[in-house]
């Protein structure tokens, strides 16, 4: 095989992967821009003969999606913040200390990632309901923070492992307590890791459907996924608006992902290789 041929094959294969990855998203965008009168006539054409932003206008003005969007933003940002904070502390402990019961703690966190979450919907509902945390954004934040902390902790652990122990020991010799060393030396160096972990948790919280659906039945505290699903089952033929809403749901996580993608790869690597 000649070099040129190999290179062409390589480029072709990659192009196929890019096309496969982007096609569904492209279609989502395309339908969201197709005017209603062309929806059925030109339904399966690659690009409509006319495009419109009407569906976006309708979604933003006549539906509750702006509210859902705001709710999702609050829940995801708060979850990202709290889960990253808790996970940083735990990940730091995993990477720096040997302590009695460490294997158990890690085991508990692993198990928590393995069982079907459906099984705990009812118990959680019973737990949160008397505390007034159902039909509440706070309740969702608490639940999502718990769900995402274990994986985030392993992710943070791998970021901490990449920072030499010497650095905080140097800071401790220089008159810092361990906590001060963590705050002034280690955390500034983990900023990409913190961003990646925060972004990962944000995305996960933004995407969560099941518990949002089960714990919050009132529209005032619905998140975007629950709202979109409700919209789909009510107006299942208004494809333009559904897909416009879908594109809107994609925007924040897509942006986040493109920003942190590189760091996430780093963190996952270290984590995955260590097992």
């Amino acid at each position: 095989m000649s070099k040129t041929f190999t290179r062409a094959l390589h480029a072709l294969a990659l192009a196929a992967f890019v096309a496969f990855a982007l096609f569904p998203l492209f279609w989502l965008l395309k339908v969201s821009l197709t005017p209603d009168d062309l929806m059925y006539g030109e339904g399966v054409r690659l690009w409509p003969s006319r495009v419109t932003l009407d569906h976006y206008g309708a979604v933003l003005r006549h539906t509750q999606f702006p509210l859902f969007f705001r709710n999702s933003l609050i829940v995801s940002a708060a979850t990202g913040l709290f889960a990253t904070a808790a996970a940083s502390a735990a990940g730091y402990a995993f990477s720096r200390f040997r302590f009695r019961g460490k294997a158990w703690v890690v085991g508990v966190m692993l198990i928590s990632q393995m069982f079907p979450l459906v099984i705990i919907v009812a118990p959680i509902f019973r737990l949160l309901s008397p505390l007034g945390l159902t039909n509440s954004l706070t309740g969702l934040v608490v639940v999502y923070t718990a769900f995402n902390t274990p994986f985030a902790a392993f992710l943070m652990q791998s970021f901490f492992e990449a920072i030499p122990k010497d650095l905080e020991e140097a800071a401790m010799m220089d008159g810092a307590t361990r906590f001060q060393a963590l705050r002034r030396v280690i955390l500034p160096l983990t900023l990409p890791g913190l961003a990646a972990t925060g972004g990962f948790v944000f995305t996960a919280a933004w995407s969560e459907l099941l518990f949002s659906l089960m714990l919050n039945s009132s529209a005032a505290v619905s998140t975007f996924p629950a709202g979109l699903l409700g919209f789909v089952s009510k107006f299942s033929v208004d494809f333009g608006q559904m897909m416009a809403a879908g594109v809107l749901a994609l925007l924040p996580v897509g942006a986040f992902f493109l920003l942190i993608q590189r760091y996430l790869v780093q963190g996952l690597t270290a984590g995955a290789v260590k097992g």
Binding site: P164, D166, L167, E169, A170, A171, M172, M173, D174, G175, A176, T177, V185, L189
Partner: peptide, 18 residues
């Protein structure tokens, strides 16, 4: 604690704050 011993240490890796 190390911070209260008033000793300075030079590390093999230098451990400079990057």
């Amino acid at each position: 604690a190390p911070k209260d011993r008033d000793l300075a240490m030079v590390f093999q890796s230098y451990a400079l704050y990057p």
